[in-house]
Amino acid sequence: MWIYEKKMEFPVKIKKQDPALAKLIITQYGGPDGELGASLRYLSQRYSAVTPQSKAILNDIGTEELAHLEMIGSICHQLCRDIDPEEIKKAGFDSYYVDHGTGVYPSSASGVPFTAAVLQSKGDPVTDLYENMAAEQKARSTYEYLMQMTDDPDVLEPLRFLREREIVHFQRFGEALEGVWEYMDRKRQFIVQKPEGMKE
């Protein structure tokens, strides 16, 4: 089950408003390679995992992704705090604003609402781990593109942290795959008794 700890995994303390940036960063909240997709993907896949290590990794990384979701939501929320209504249109934030105000809504940077179509839970332990490795790389690239979109250190620090986490997660899923190969190979071992009298 999940317990909430009332603190952030990494602090989010934004001083400068920037709704145009929020419109981009929201993509890591509800977009194709974002943290909501990641947590749902891993937490859904854990039911059909086969090795104890991969069950643990799916569970734990899925849980950590929820903490990352919280960070992204906080960034978007703080970037839009007390914004001047004149800024909204200038920032290209108006189309999001009319549907959601300055609230946080799971969608991509181009306004596509979150959908489970961004993730897969194939029920096949090998397929699922490959899916996850690809997902971590897509997320890493997205953070890199987002980091190109701002100079604000208050935003860059959490983004840099999140990008690094994707690299570590990729490594862990790759290691889980190793255990799954061993499991698959073990399952297919056929032991045949050598008949008596058979020459070497």
């Binding site: 603190k7 952030m8 995994e9 570590v168 862990r172 290691e175 889980a176 190793e178």
Partner: peptide, 23 residues
């Protein structure tokens, strides 16, 4: 205090993920 706690809890997260594949 919050900073120190955040750092320690993060160490625990990263170490736990490592231990998941290196028990």
């Amino acid at each position: 205090m919050l900073k120190r706690l955040t750092i320690l809890d993060f160490l625990a997260v990263d170490l736990q993920l490592y231990l998941d594949s290196h028990p």
